[in-house]
Amino acid sequence: MATFLSARHEPPAPGDGPVIKVTDLTVMYGDRPVLWDVDWEVPAGVLMAVVGPNGAGKTTMLRTILGLVRPVAGSITVFGRPPAEARRWIAYVPQRTAVDWDFPATVLDVVLMGRYSHLGWVRRPGAQDRERALEALAQVGMVHLAHRQIGQLSVGQQQRVFVARALAQDAWLYLMDEPFAGVDATTEQALIEVLRGLKAAGRTVIVVHHDLQTVPLYFDWVTLLNVRCVAWGPVTTVFTADYLRQTYGERAGILSG
């Protein structure tokens, strides 16, 4: 509640530290481990892909960064703080399928939700917020559909709306869960331009990604995750056949040494 009330305009405390620092993190769903003893760091200003097979804990990782999942062991800080206190600087793009697209709302209504975090309780979005929302829609090429009902959008357009909502949040850290899943090629190109723009503006972007082919094309950093964190770092050094094999099976990491 405190996060929602606090002013969100000031940027996170500058410093040389990583944006996210994870130590010995273990997360369980019931008796099933989803993340096992993960050590991980994300430096500021990277455009990072998180890849790994199904059930590797990618979404859980995002939810842990947001403080929505409580780890059974280990620690995590975001901008040097506990996750719940850092939410004001984070924009989250859930999987498109997580919501009911038959909901009675227009495109602009949904994007305006991104502004709610700046408003605090009771206040309604004003002219400025509408302007910012329209700007965000322009960034994803959707202004002309601002007043369309969301149920009438294509998959790619729905995803653009979700990204525009995140842009309207004016955050410092962007977490996106499979934003390219099921979208058309044009949308994919448009979205990757948006992500590059964020990186150029010094923002940190973490994207759960499923298409290994495009990792070196789109991203400069990558994390290979499969319950354990197999490797992370610049794409050029980490995105190797050897690490990929470790991530997607065949050979193990820590135990074979």
Partner: peptide
Amino acid sequence: GRQAAQEILGANGGAPSHPPS
């Protein structure tokens, strides 16, 4: 303990399918 750990990780996805060399 090594054997046990290997079984656990083996059962949890990100797993070695061969015993450690």
